[in-house]
Every structure is written in structure tokens, then in C-alpha cells.
């Protein structure tokens, strides 16, 4: 397979439904909506023929699930924000890519499977991203889940498997990660006008991460994932995974042009729309201290190894 897939741009966007369903209710949500619109135009201009989404709001348990239904149709309602309205969708998926992605995932030692069922519940984050970034379905898409038990090695190998499939099929790709920065929301109802980042600490960390993104330091953010998880992520899952996957899929280096198009609160969580464009040169390697991994060999039996 080719070493350098044709990745035209990468996007990091928030999963909450507010920019889709209620952009007029809060100026910040409106600015996020405008940033999504800018990204939509840039995707259009970039000539990509695949939008590949990694969604943190699609949890999986049986390995890694990849959406392969050629034309999923449904009406989705968010568990928390059902009062904002329904999200009707009809998407166009790249089934050939989904199958190829699964095959390369398995070749690299991962348990992976495609899903193609009428009525399968596509998650809020993916629905929001696809409806705002690709509203007329001109560009086929693919969505991959986030396994709740997986950690760094598995996510990096999954990102590389995506890269394998991009190269094999010669796709021109927009890589989209759907995730919050800080993910602690308010646990009470708030008026839209009252929205703000949950705490000063969350805000400070978010802004530091955004500096890294603006400098194009994607691999550095990947290397700092464990710190980020400990500092500003509610422990719903074992780790902050999206930067691991994004860096492995786009290329594990810091050679990107970064642009933060918007950063706003979404019921307390940190929501940012960020673009990374592969570039020549960059800020260099700053934070690299974790090993790379090419093949997933499963959980190591630490207790067994210690037996005499």
C-alpha cells in the first residue's frame, strides 16, 4: 500500500446538536454553526471524494464498528437534548471503503466489523457533522466507532488501518473527528444565554490545546492525550482517544497548518471547530515519548507473565 494517502484536510468538530438545531438561541452556538459552514465550503473546494468520521459518541464493545449501509435513513433524537428537536437524515455511505477499512483493521490484528442495518442508530455527533458538513450528500462518507475499552495502541492501529484503506482505494479524504475538548456539561438546565465553559480550569486547558492545534502540533496533542484525559475529561471511557486516532490516520507528525475557526461552550462542554491541513515543514517534534505501534496484539497478560 502507498505510504502517503491523499488527505486533503482534517477537521475536529463538536458532537452536540445545538449548532444544528438551535444556532439562533446562543451567539456562540451560532458561531460554531458558521464555522461548520466554512468547513463545508472548504470540503467542497478541496475535491475530496470521501468524508471519514471518527465519532466519540458512537461507542462500541465488539471491536470496532464501521458504518457500511449505502443509504441509511432515519430520524434521530438526542438522549439529553430531545427538546431541541429531531434530526432527520439520509446519508450516502462509501460501502467499498468501509469493507476495505475493516479488512485492513483485521490485518493489523484488530477485531472489526461493518454494520449495515436499516434503522441502525447513527449517533448524534455523526449526524450533526454530516448534516452540516455535507448537507446535500454529494460526498460519500464512512463512520467508525470508538470502542469503550480500547486504549492507545488499539486507536493508533485503527488510525493506520484507515490510512491503509485510503491508500489502497486512492480516495481523496477529509478526516473528521467528532469530539468535545473538555466534556463536562452542566448537570442542571440552563438558559441558552447562560452557557459558558464549565470551569476556568476546563477553559484554560481547552485554550492550551487550541494553541497546539493552531501550531499544527497534532502528534504532540496525541502524545499528551493521557494528560488531557486526566485533567478535563469526565471518565465515561478509559481514555481521551480522538487525538490518537486522528494523528495515526492523518500522519503522526506536527507538519500541519492549523486554524481554530470557533471555540464555544456547549452546555458547559468545550466545543471547537478546527481545521488541520497537511503542510511541508512544521514546528518539529516536541512531545514525543510514547512508542509507535503497527500491529495490535491484544491485551498483554501482565499477571500471567509474572508467574513462576
Amino acid at each position: 500500500m502507498s505510504e502517503s494517502p491523499d488527505i486533503r484536510l482534517g477537521l475536529y468538530v463538536p458532537p452536540h446538536p445545538h449548532p444544528l438545531l438551535a444556532p439562533e438561541q446562543n451567539e456562540g452556538w451560532g458561531r460554531l454553526r458558521d464555522a461548520f459552514e466554512t468547513c463545508r465550503q472548504r470540503i467542497e473546494e478541496s475535491g475530496v471524494d470521501l468524508i471519514l468520521i471518527y465519532s466519540t459518541t458512537w461507542p462500541s464493545i465488539i471491536g470496532h464498528q464501521i458504518q457500511a449501509h449505502p443509504n441509511p435513513v432515519f430520524t434521530h433524537v438526542d438522549d439529553d437534548f430531545h427538546f431541541l428537536g429531531s434530526m432527520e437524515y439520509e446519508f450516502k455511505m462509501d460501502s467499498e471503503f468501509a469493507n476495505c477499512f475493516r479488512d485492513f483493521s483485521e490485518e493489523r490484528g484488530l477485531h472489526a466489523r461493518t454494520v449495515a442495518y436499516d434503522g441502525f442508530p447513527i449517533d448524534t455527533g455523526s449526524v450533526v457533522a454530516l448534516k452540516l458538513l455535507n448537507p446535500d450528500n454529494r460526498i460519500p462518507a464512512c463512520i467508525v466507532s470508538s470502542n469503550v475499552y480500547s486504549n492507545r495502541a488499539e486507536q493508533i492501529v485503527l488510525g493506520k488501518a484507515a490510512r491503509d484503506a485510503m491508500s489502497k482505494l486512492g480516495r481523496k479524504v477529509a478526516v473528521v473527528v467528532v469530539a468535545s475538548l473538555s466534556n463536562r456539561m452542566f448537570t442542571e438546565h440552563i438558559e441558552p444565554s447562560e452557557d459558558s465553559i464549565h470551569s476556568a480550569k476546563d477553559d484554560e486547558w481547552n485554550r492550551k490545546i487550541l494553541e497546539f492545534f493552531e501550531d499544527g502540533r497534532l502528534e504532540d496533542i496525541s502524545q499528551l492525550s493521557r494528560d488531557i484525559h486526566g485533567q478535563i475529561r469526565v471518565s465515561k471511557v478509559v481514555a481521551y482517544k480522538p487525538a490518537w486516532w486522528m494523528a495515526a490516520a492523518m500522519g503522526q507528525h506536527n507538519n500541519y497548518d492549523g486554524e481554530v475557526l470557533a471555540y464555544e461552550a456547549l452546555h458547559g462542554a468545550g466545543g471547537a471547530v478546527i481545521q488541520l491541513t497537511p503542510a511541508e515543514g512544521g514546528i518539529g517534534d516536541k512531545e514525543f515519548d510514547e512508542d509507535d505501534v503497527e500491529f495490535y496484539r491484544g491485551d498483554r497478560s501482565v499477571l500471567d507473565q509474572g508467574m513462576i
Binding site: S60, I62, H82, F120, P121
Partner: peptide, 25 residues
């Protein structure tokens, strides 16, 4: 049905649909 803003209660008389398990479809 996981909510972060308190507990929510079903408030309509009828829900007719297909339920597809996201983990074991």
C-alpha cells in the same frame, strides 16, 4: 437512556418504532 442533566421521564402515550441495538445490531 443516559442523561447528564438529571433524570428524564417518557412523556407521550405511544412509541412505535424499530429498536436496533447499537452494540449488537
Amino acid at each position: 437512556w443516559q442523561t447528564y442533566i438529571g433524570n428524564h421521564f417518557l412523556g407521550l402515550e405511544r412509541f412505535k418504532n424499530i429498536s436496533v441495538d447499537p452494540i449488537f445490531p
